[in-house]
Structures are given as structure tokens and as C-alpha cells.
């Protein structure tokens, strides 16, 4: 039974940050690594992610990207509603789809949608968006405790781990259960810094939750993105740490915290 595990959210083709996060997690004594899906999107060269997942033995579940690519959908099914968000989402998806082999897409279809573990005596449930919908956004300011308690009851879990929003947070519920959005390693959390975040869970007096910042070569990623002619808006986010696209989906509080 491991005493420390690392959980990574959306990779978004950022293989440089993925490798930095995996190394960092191992150096901190993580005994098992998990990824909650969305391997592609946003960044360059999607196929550079797969060998790293193998090398670092990262157990991976499906995000909406994997589900969409595997099933041949025309869009990412990200769950955006505003045309401005969908415009940039489509650019990412088309690029990722063009640069992902059919063998990789078939493999994505074999990944599980959710995963259950036992950790620190807790029933842990890993999901991409939420346990009930792969593309549901669980934001901190719109996921109140009563609602999360209901989700945990319905899905028989004590600790729920999700990603999909790009912003990490932790809410301890009455009764001592927990919901953690593990954040993403693909891009910074809209805070004006270039570091990305993953989540470290330690079995100590229950579960200790830590969000770990990871520095990586963002300049190099930006060069790779330019070489692949990805939008300047995406490159700006990588270099400044401020989100420039897909902002309309943000709730009021999260929107107010960013620059745009």
C-alpha cells in the first residue's frame, strides 16, 4: 500500500512540463503516478507525451480529448458554450487530431473513464471532469460542499480527484471527506507565473493534500509552439502565466482573478 502518490491533470501536449512533474514527484517519494486525462490540446507535438507516460509508469484515465479522438468526434467536447471559447478549442483539437496517429487514438479508446483506488484507508475515485460527466467543470467557486457531498454519496467515494478546469483546489467536506481538483501540468493556473502544478497525496493522519509548483523550460515550449504555428494567444499564456483564451467558461470569482 503506497504512502504517497502523485496525481497529474491535463497534459495538453506539454511534454516538457510532464517530464519535469514526473521527476519532481519521484524525487519527493511518490510511489505511484496517475494522470486524469486530456493528454493533448494547446501545446505542440502530442505524440511526445505517450513515451513519457510509459517511462514514468503513469496510470492514465480518459479525458474528453481521449474520448473524442478515439471515437472520431469532430470537436473536443470540452463543454464550452461561448463561441469565443469554442473557436480556440477547435484550433487545438484540429491540430492535436492531425498530429495523433490512429494507433494512439485506438489506445486512447482503451483507457478507463474513471478509476478506483484505496489510499490511506479511503475509497478514492479518479475522474476527468466529474464522476457523472467527463466534461463537467468543477470550479472552486461553484462547487459548494452540499453538492460535492451528494456526488461522493452517489459515487460511493471518500476522496474524489478531478481535473478539466485547469485550476487546482481542495475542499474538505463536513465528515472529513475531500474533493481535490488536481490542476493541470499543461499550462499555468492563470496566476501570472509560468510554473505548472500537480498534486501530491500523503497518507498521514488521514490524507495530506499538497499542490506542488513545477518549473520547466517554458521558453523552449514557446519556441516549439511557434514552430508548429500554434496561435500566439496560446504562446502568450505559456510565457506570461495569464490565460488569454477559453475564458468565458470561468465563473465570476475565477474570472476576476486573472488578467483577461
Amino acid at each position: 500500500m503506497p504512502e504517497r502518490i502523485a496525481v497529474l491533470g491535463g497534459v495538453y501536449s506539454n511534454s516538457l512540463a510532464l517530464e519535469a512533474a514526473c521527476r519532481d514527484a519521484l524525487s519527493r517519494g511518490a510511489e505511484a503516478l496517475y494522470c486524469l486525462g486530456d493528454l493533448g490540446a494547446f501545446g505542440p507535438y502530442p505524440e511526445r507525451v505517450f513515451p513519457l507516460l510509459e517511462q514514468y509508469r503513469v496510470t492514465t484515465i480518459q479525458g474528453n480529448y481521449e474520448e473524442s479522438l478515439a471515437s472520431g468526434r469532430a470537436d473536443c467536447n470540452c463543454g464550452y458554450t461561448d463561441p469565443r471559447d469554442n473557436h480556440f478549442a477547435q484550433i487545438s483539437y484540429d491540430y492535436t487530431s492531425r498530429n495523433t496517429s490512429s494507433a494512439a487514438k485506438r489506445w486512447m479508446g482503451t483507457l478507463p473513464g474513471t478509476l478506483r483506488l484505496e489510499f490511506a484507508g479511503r475509497r478514492v475515485l479518479l475522474a476527468h471532469g466529474s464522476p457523472r460527466r467527463i466534461n463537467e467543470f468543477l470550479w472552486q467557486s461553484t462547487s459548494p460542499a452540499p453538492f460535492l457531498s451528494r456526488l461522493l454519496d452517489e459515487h460511493r467515494a471518500d476522496l474524489l480527484l478531478v481535473t478539466h478546469t485547469g485550476l487546482h483546489w481542495h475542499r474538505r467536506l463536513p465528515g472529513g471527506r475531500d474533493v481535490v481538483n488536481v490542476g493541470v501540468v499543461g499550462r499555468p493556473p492563470n496566476n501570472g507565473r509560468t510554473d505548472v502544478y500537480y498534486t501530491l497525496l500523503t497518507a498521514r493522519d488521514g490524507v495530506k493534500v499538497e499542490f506542488v509548483p513545477v518549473a520547466y523550460d517554458a521558453e523552449r515550449l514557446a519556441r516549439d509552439m511557434r514552430a508548429e504555428k500554434l496561435p500566439e494567444e496560446f504562446i502568450e499564456t505559456i510565457l506570461t502565466g495569464w490565460w488569454t483564451t477559453c475564458l468565458e467558461i470561468l465563473p465570476a470569482k475565477e474570472r476576476a482573478a486573472g488578467k483577461f
Binding site: 461553484t142 462547487s143 459548494p144 452540499p146 453538492f147 457531498s149 451528494r150 456526488l151 454519496d153
Partner: peptide, 9 residues
């Protein structure tokens, strides 16, 4: 009642 039923918003 909404709190008991787990209303989100």
C-alpha cells in the same frame, strides 16, 4: 431543503 438535496447553484 436545497442544502439537504445537494443543490449546486
Amino acid at each position: 431543503e436545497g442544502e439537504e438535496l445537494g443543490v449546486r447553484e
